[in-house]
């Protein structure tokens, strides 16, 4: 599903160049449940951004579901993000002025799905994360755990092949963290590849495979 071959990435600052990823090789199979661990500065966020087609890499090759992700137009990037990937962020990143239902339905808007169908699907996915009753609430009326579940529903509605989660439990207490992880487990059981970036061992322990990053190279996988 995901293949990274000798990926290099540097950030240019005014005075020097920061070599963040120094040749990353990873092969993640379809349906895998993987966590990526590393201290801050290890390059795990950069790697996730490259995997999420939010950032470009300098060298190497990245295949997502068989497509080479390189030199794409912004429109193509948007298309792959929309159809193959689902994002879950540490800070949830829901749109504050939209209800839970509208937030969940948003990716389908960009797939030009009919309005009515969008709303029905949104309710269906909210039901899956146990928030059907909260459909018409706004993010600021919900707890962190609930918001993250809405975000997960939003990432799932476009039926992606891969879910990319950046510290999804970072802002949650351990009890809600577990709830969220259980949802990820459930999602993974449906055959969706799940990648979680985390620095918590309890979280990585719940995944099937742990990739450890250190100073821009893979320490173990």
């Amino acid at each position: 599903m995901i293949q990274l071959k000798a990926i290099h990435k540097s950030y240019q600052t005014d005075y020097n160049s920061l070599h963040v990823l120094k040749g990353i090789d990873i092969d993640i199979k379809e349906g895998d449940f993987v966590s990526i661990m590393g201290s801050s500065g290890s390059g795990k966020s950069t790697m996730l951004n490259i995997l999420g087609i939010l950032d470009k890499y300098d060298e190497g090759e990245y295949f997502l579901d068989g497509h080479l992700i390189k030199n794409l137009s912004q429109k193509q990037e948007a298309h792959y993000r929309n159809h193959l990937l689902g994002f879950v962020f540490q800070s949830f990143n829901l749109l504050a002025f939209k209800t839970a239902k509208e937030n969940v339905a948003l990716p389908l808007y960009y797939q030009k799905v009919d309005r009515k169908e969008r709303q029905e699907l949104a309710l269906e996915y909210l039901d899956q994360v146990g928030l059907l009753d909260w459909a018409d609430h706004y993010p600021n009326q919900m707890s962190g755990g609930q918001q993250q579940r809405v975000a997960i529903a939003r990432s799932l509605i476009s039926k992606p092949k891969v879910i990319l989660a950046d510290e999804p439990t970072g802002a949650l207490d351990s009890k809600t963290s577990e709830d969220v992880m259980n949802i990820f487990k459930k999602v993974n059981k449906q055959g969706i590849t799940v990648l979680i970036v985390t620095h918590e061992d309890e979280i990585s322990r719940m995944t099937n495979r742990v990739i450890r990053l250190r100073d821009g190279i893979i320490e173990s996988s």
């Binding site: 912004q74 993000r81 929309n82 159809h83 948003l106 990716p107 960009y110 990432s155």
Partner: peptide
């Protein structure tokens, strides 16, 4: 800015 970033992450094209 943030909202537009989120929209882009979930698949909004530059055109939209």
């Amino acid at each position: 800015t943030k909202e537009i970033g989120i929209r882009k992450a979930i698949g909004a094209t530059p055109g939209s």
